[in-house]
């Protein structure tokens, strides 16, 4: 078990980027991939892409982020990679449907963001879980799913 207790910096910072680049050439950079929501955790037990068992335990004041460097040694580094959030884009039929849809999503405590007339729901689980809840809205036309190619 590899204990990782501090965020040393971010892979995008020049002084880290140079060393990580060199280590990457030798396949010595290991990544911990996390969902966006899980970056709020201060403690987690997780394996790197190379299978190293890691015990991450950072201070409450720190926050994991995409590119967080948790280990940087001469022969090995461990970096956090955050999975990109997948959004389900919904187009309401009209103003009344928009109000209804906003209320509905809020009532389910879904994470949303607004882009013009489109309401986007962050998928924190399988897409089917969300579309099942929206079945009535989709069936009666109050909302439609806007696929990326339609946007």
């Amino acid at each position: 078990m590899l204990r990782l207790t501090r965020i040393l910096g971010n892979a995008t910072e020049p002084e880290f980027a140079e060393r990580l680049h060199a280590l990457e050439h030798d396949g010595r950079v290991e990544t911990i991939t996390l969902d966006a929501a899980d970056t709020a955790r201060k403690r987690l037990r997780v394996a790197t892409d190379k299978g190293t068992d890691c015990a991450v335990a950072i201070a409450r004041s720190d926050r994991l982020a995409n590119g967080a460097v948790l280990l940087l040694e001469d022969d090995r580094a461990v970096v956090v990679r955050m999975r990109e959030t997948v959004w389900l884009a919904l187009g309401p039929r009209d103003l009344a449907a928009a109000l209804d849809l906003g209320y509905f999503c809020g009532n389910l405590h879904w994470r949303v963001r607004f882009e013009g007339e489109v309401l986007k729901v962050a998928l924190d689980g399988p897409r089917e879980t969300y579309t099942a809840r929206l079945a009535q809205h989709l069936a009666d036309g109050r909302a439609r799913i806007i696929e990326e190619q339609d946007a």
Partner: peptide
């Protein structure tokens, strides 16, 4: 650059 050895036992800081 801190090594895993430097950090050993530092979990108490968390």
């Amino acid at each position: 650059v801190e090594t895993a050895q430097d950090l050993a036992g530092a979990t108490a800081a968390a």
